[in-house]
Amino acid sequence: MPSRQEVLLDAAIAVIGTQGMRGLTHRAVDAAAGMPAGSTSNYFKTRDALVNAVVARFAARERAAWETIADLVRLRSRAELAAALTAYVHRAVGPDRVMTIARYSVFVEAALRPELQPRLAEAQRAIREWGAQWLRAVGSTAPEAECRQILDQLDGIILHQLAFPDPTLDLGRAIAAAVGRPGRPSSAGANPR
């Protein structure tokens, strides 16, 4: 069961995902959490303290979500990897839309406040390690570089689907192209950044 602080931070993430960083106030978090006025400020005295705690909670939640995926997914082919990532993207732009919007809002905040970057980078490293393991399992010769490129492409697809939804986009086909076809290495492995 989440602690009172975690409930407040999860409510703060929901506020960010529905109202953006500008909407993140102590009062808005109290209301979203269904707690009395002043609850958030009891734990986080300033907005900066709240933002720092939100970033830490967000990074922990993102890492836990990918940890769960990593524990459940056992891939044998690029087609299976593409299918798993397609399911992830469908969730990210559908049922998890609020969390995904919060994710991008947090990333923009980290671009403006570099002190937030280390915690997010730590979670990102863990995600890339899992991705590299999956790619290694399906025969990638450059799994780390390929993982970076695939995740960057997924971020682009997700961001565009959030900002400019295209109901005609075949997500499965777009993601299969990013991952590469079964039996053929992805172009990402041949051109690492």
Results as ranks from 00 to 15, higher is better:
A11N: 01
I175S: 02
A163Y: 08
G139E: 05
R193Q: 10
I69R: 14
G17T: 04
D96H: 11
V93Y: 11
D170N: 15
M35R: 14
V73L: 12
A121L: 13
R57H: 11
R91G: 11
R113G: 02
D10V: 04
G139W: 02
P143N: 08
D48Q: 14
A174W: 02
Q117G: 05
R27P: 00
A37P: 06
I13P: 00
E109F: 00
S186V: 08
R27A: 12
R184P: 05
L120F: 04
L72I: 07
M99W: 11
F107E: 03
R113T: 13
L8R: 00
D10R: 13
L154M: 14
M1R: 12
A79G: 10
S140K: 03
D166N: 15
L24I: 08
A33F: 09
A176M: 08
R57D: 06
L72R: 15
P167V: 12
A14G: 08
A102K: 01
R184D: 10
P143L: 06
A14D: 10
A176I: 02
A145Q: 08
T25P: 07
L154R: 00
R63V: 00
T168P: 00
W66S: 08
A145S: 11
E109K: 11
R74H: 15
D30V: 07
L9E: 02
V54F: 01
L169Q: 13
A121M: 13
R76I: 01
M35E: 13
A32P: 00
L162M: 06
L75D: 03
S187G: 09
L135H: 03
A32Y: 01
I13D: 00
L85S: 07
S140W: 05
W134Y: 15
G17Y: 02
A60R: 08
G183S: 10
G17F: 02
P95T: 14
L120I: 10
V108W: 07
S140E: 06
L24R: 04
A14V: 03
A56M: 06
T168M: 09
L8I: 08
I150F: 01
H160A: 10
T168F: 07
A84Q: 06
L162Q: 01
I13Q: 02
L112T: 07
G38E: 09
T86Y: 10
A33Q: 09
P118G: 05
A32G: 03
S39D: 07
E144L: 13
R76Q: 13
T68S: 14
Q117E: 10
V73I: 14
W66V: 11
